[in-house]
Write a protein that binds this DNA or RNA. Structure first.
Lengths: 200, 200, 200, 200
DNA sequence: CATGAATGAGCGTTCATTCAT
DNA sequence: TATGAATGAACGCTCATTCAT
């Protein structure tokens, strides 16, 4: 109770856990390592989160929060149709570059979720939250006069697939020349799919 | 060696290992589990592959072989420009649907490689092989009169990003309506990027 | 202390603890489980009973109280010699059937006491109390004209051995045909050992 | 392989485990303690017996073997009716006195089995084996001219209840005067129940 | 009385790996 | 090749207990 607004201990641990996951990878990140990373006794993890699954669920939740926090704050101010269309995906991507470790952890969760049912639900939740925000943006775009050539779900699917695919490339090989160009191409394609009415 | 065409024991084990990885996930797949899955004593794994890392490297190699085998055989016969442009990505995707478990394992390796140096090299190798084949296809397309609006590396980047992103979606949520549409859209975009000269 | 007849909190906890012991068995009944069962924070157990040993001692005491309460109340009214001889063991047994869980806990304590000195004293105390009541009953029998062919301690020994042995059978296998017959045989034997003078 | 007839390692460990159980009691006997007692690394227990349950099952099996071994060898030579009737229970009891620790472990298993299903089956098995041997003895008694006033199952029930009850007394309080007398009384009762035809 | 936090010790179990035969 | 046995290290988790408020 040293400062007035102190983030809660569980939250601090979760962020440390995410960092540990980024450090060692999902497969090699034991509770001991997370505890060490958070400078907490290993049993406190059980105290706060119950068991390993409870911790993982909370980690996934926190990952979702942080992934979305970066995105939502970035697109809050956008208003004009062009701006919305152009900046939407850009914001998504900037978040990847700003927090690559967070996205690496996300990728780890997504990958692990393929064979882990309890994780699957958590990962689906993150996708849903992404979806929700993207749809809100699309809605605002439409109101601002943007004509979207695709139905909502397909748009979300394409954007997230693009984001994920390019993120994998980024995490694998870093910021290459080709990636930058791929990004530009992908973005201009999205612009095509969502062009202001005036362009027609 | 009783019959002429008998796959070697190490190879059989590798395929069993891939199956085990698909079953339990990269994080939960111990050597014991792999051994059980292959119906081999676990010490045979050390006999054939040295240590865990050696086995993983070989698994990655084998995953690459199988991923590429499906792809190369599919595109071997293509000749006309339209055919090449249209069927290229389609073949890639069909392989995903035909062997989702193999692609799940691949995703697991890609994800683990982010924090594991020895895996990173292996995974990069798989990407390189993909790249090589795609470039060969592009080359054949060009010779058949296809005009590619992008440089080679960017084209590969875009195709692989799309493939990976959509594969993640497929592994996460199965064959949804949206995914089918996303695929169609993505493909038509690729057609745009690589249109026959005659279209101009 | 809102109502006049409210059992004290420690007593309530003890009964809950006995129930937990019956549920999980002596070996698998941690303080946490007892606390959960009693819907009390586990630290309250330390507050009321000191440590694990203190709790166990109190539990044994309470088990003794409840075992004996059932018995003494049942034999209070007996007066005639036949009645005393006949009903004595019957009451003991009825208590087993009425509260099998309590007797299961008792058996657990007896068994644990074999290797646990502090428990041994507690369990011996329960036996002593049984002994006392049986002897009182015998005394009353004698005054009512019953001739007991055995000295007091041997009688107690036989009765308790029979009770324990048959209880073990009951707890192991439930109310079988054989058990019912064994009970009848045992009882008629006791009748033989303690027959009214008039029978001679 | 130093001597020709060396008891197998698992068997040696089981006997050490039984000894450890007698030492610490069922509730306080961890695998570590068993391992220490057997002078084996704790993981060898898993190597030989799988998990804790597997070990316990084998222990129960071994306890049964040893309980019965003492009994069967003792009654093998009996032939005359009086001998059989007299010596039957005596042999049972001599085994208790000869191996009190073994019987203490048995009591612990019986007690734990009340709340543990997997143990219950094992304990029932031991009872069945006892039953079998007692019935064989009864059969031999009958052939030798012994008239048994009870049906088989009831006889077994009474004998085992008596044995268990008196064993509990013995384990609780040792070899007391009263116990000796109780034994004598119990035995003479059994003689009553099974008297040679000639006596009638 | 009650609660949040912590701790030393130990639980049963599994990890990858090695040795000897 | 194959097998029985072993091992250092760690796993996730629970034990009874204590401290501070």
């Amino acid at each position: 109770m040293t400062t007035a607004k102190e983030t809660s201990e569980p939250l601090r641990i979760l962020d440390a856990a995410i960092d540990a996951l980024a450090e060692y990878g999902y497969a090699n990140c034991s509770m001991q390592r997370i505890a060490d990373h958070a400078e907490v006794d290993k049993r406190m993890l059980h105290y706060y989160f119950g068991d390993r699954n409870g911790l993982t669920v909370q980690i996934a939740e926190r990952v979702g929060d942080r992934l979305l926090a970066g995105f939502t704050s970035a697109i809050e101010g956008l208003s004009g149709p062009r701006e919305i269309a152009a900046a939407g995906f850009e914001s998504l991507w900037e978040n990847v570059v700003a927090e690559p470790r967070l996205h690496a952890v996300h990728l780890g969760l997504v990958s692990a979720a393929v064979t882990d049912d309890s994780l699957r639900a958590q990962v689906a939740r993150i996708r849903d939250r992404y979806s929700e925000v993207i749809l809100q943006l699309a809605e605002r775009g439409r109101k601002a006069g943007l004509e979207l050539r695709l139905n909502d779900e397909t748009l979300v699917g394409l954007i997230l697939a693009g984001l994920n695919g390019l993120t994998v490339d980024y995490l694998q090989r870093g910021e290459t020349e080709e990636l930058t160009q791929s990004l530009a191409e992908f973005q201009s394609w999205l612009m095509q799919l969502a062009r202001p009415l005036a362009d027609a």
